[in-house]
Amino acid sequence: MKRLAFLFFFLVLTGLVAEPLFAQTSDSDRARAILQKIDDLWRSTSSVAKLKMVVKTEHYTRTLVLDSWTKGKEKSLVRIVSPLKEAGTVSLKNGNAMYTYLPKTDRVIRLTSGMMMGSWMGSHFTNDDLVKESRLADDYNPEITYEGRRDGRKIIRLTLLPKPDAPVVWGKIVTTVRAEDYLPLVSLYYNEDMVLARTLTFSDIREMGGRKLPVVLRMVPADKPGEYTELTYESIRFGVPLRDSRFSLLQLRRR
């Protein structure tokens, strides 16, 4: 059943099913569909991408070029291409296990629970964010809380409340998407006291890898408004056949 549903949404997302289909479904189904779309926007059965990451903090600004591979929901691998000093550093996620390969010392380090809140490659994302990145639909109940025009644009606002037992720290996430194609514009993350903790904005929507998607993601922590981490997709390809072995520990060093 689950697989069928997945297939269904896969079809939806790849544009094989016409949009009006949504109109016939109920609001909550629609909310769910939007969430699934966001979850799967940058991934598919598999994906290969090249990104640029700019991290701006009070103390430094750094620019990284990254290669990324994903397969399914469980496997992802990110490798630093530049700067040269860090080139070859790999971050591998396989299910709930996460590893880092450090070329300078030629070591693979498995991340333990204590490191989950550490910064991922110097960015404003934590390792935990990466482990849990693909689970919005699993952990939250979406609800459409606004539908209408904002700044001359038709939008839908979703409020995601965590499922009662979901192991997530946020109190709620408010996501705004374009009404016409459900592409996300901004997500606001609130803590349990409903105080804004971080803002994730999506911009520069364009065609890439056969999909229309926002290629720039920018995260701004609420307590440090002057800082941000910005991810820009330079290219992305979906549905590329990737072997499982690409995500194995043994392969980490051989790149």
């Binding site: 903090t57 300078k104 010392t105 110097g122």
Partner: peptide, 13 residues
Amino acid sequence: VGQAADGSMANDL
């Protein structure tokens, strides 16, 4: 392994 002041992944043997 640590995070260096310039944001890079500090690591050494």
